[in-house]
């Protein structure tokens, strides 16, 4: 009984990580209907950036992530402004194929610079630290991941519904032409949105890099988890995305508890089951 409870708790905590992967994807899709196939590779890119800052400058990983955030914001802003904005339109082919190409470019660029070796960002004693919650022990880092995921979602919701930038986001999302008439420049709004998504990506990368080994090729799998979380949660709902991440996390920890080889497969199957019974996700909001 305790072990099943333990598995659920670990699954929820893992779901926090997947929600962090997914929040950036969800944000970009929500505002400009763009699915970035390089999203997972950008997470890995951010993880390597944090790793470089930690090893080269001797920074604490959390401080390194703070330094990496504005850098990744610039990367995201420039990526959207100079490359991805050109692909937006009624045709879905250009954004998909350009971001797919970008995914291959980032992966192989990282392979060339950092080789295929597995890396890890060390957080010292925090890695193994845990807190006793009643009968079960919870790792500090996994707990921090979930807390960060919730903080990110609250922060993004506040940004969306309480600030003028958020109003501009929503207006551009609804109707870029009319928003343009009101003095909003959609291209800049899109660039800012991708920049913010990359800040979220950096937070995700911090936990990706500190909790487990990573190498340049693991990006696509993170994209898939993020995508599943978004679809399970229902398009357009950030809290739904968190729920989706948790569903995959729990499915994976239960799969792993039965047979370690089934961990990933169990997550995918949970996604397919949700797609079967609730094609529009658990908390649908957007129409597309």
């Amino acid at each position: 009984m305790t072990s099943a409870f333990d598995t659920i708790i670990q699954g929820i905590l893992l779901g926090g990580l997947y929600a962090l992967f997914a929040a950036g994807l969800s944000l970009v899709f929500g505002i400009m209907r763009l699915v970035n196939l390089a999203h997972g590779d950008l997470i890995v890119l951010a993880a390597f950036l944090i790793l470089v800052l930690v090893t080269a400058l001797g920074l604490n990983p959390f401080a390194a992530a703070l330094v990496a955030m504005p850098l990744m914001f610039i990367v995201g802003w420039a990526l959207q402004f100079f490359l991805l904005n050109r692909t937006l339109g009624a045709d879905i082919l250009p954004p998909l194929l350009v971001t797919f190409g970008l995914s291959i470019v980032i992966q192989n660029g990282l392979l060339e610079v950092f080789s295929a070796d597995s890396r890890r960002i060390s957080v010292g004693g925090l890695e193994s630290a845990s807190i006793a919650l009643g009968p079960i022990n919870v790792g500090v880092m996994p707990l921090l991941t979930l807390v960060s995921a919730i903080a990110v979602i609250i922060g993004l919701n506040q940004l969306f519904y309480r600030t003028s930038l958020g109003r501009a986001f929503r207006a551009t999302s609804d109707d870029p032409v009319t928003a343009g008439l009101m003095g909003i420049r959609p291209k800049r709004i899109f660039a800012t949105a991708t920049g913010i998504a990359m800040v979220v990506v950096t937070i995700a990368a911090l936990y990706l890099g500190t909790r487990a080994n990573f190498d340049p090729t693991i990006g696509p799998a993170r994209l898939i988890y993020a995508f599943e979380a978004v679809i399970i949660g229902g398009l357009g709902s950030l809290w739904g995305t968190l729920a989706g991440g948790i569903v995959i996390g729990i499915a994976q920890t239960f799969g792993a508890a039965i047979n370690p080889e089934w961990q990933i497969l169990a997550g995918h199957l949970a996604f397919l089951v949700v797609l079967l019974v609730r094609p529009r996700g658990l908390f649908p909001r957007a129409v597309d």
Binding site: L83, T87, L93, P94, L97, V98, F100, G101, L102, S103, I104, V105, Q107, N108, G109, L111, E112
Partner: peptide, 15 residues
């Protein structure tokens, strides 16, 4: 990996 990188860039430029 330069090969794939170049192929990816060509793909993006063409698209």
């Amino acid at each position: 990996s330069w090969y794939l990188l170049i192929l990816g860039l060509i793909g993006i430029v063409i698209m």
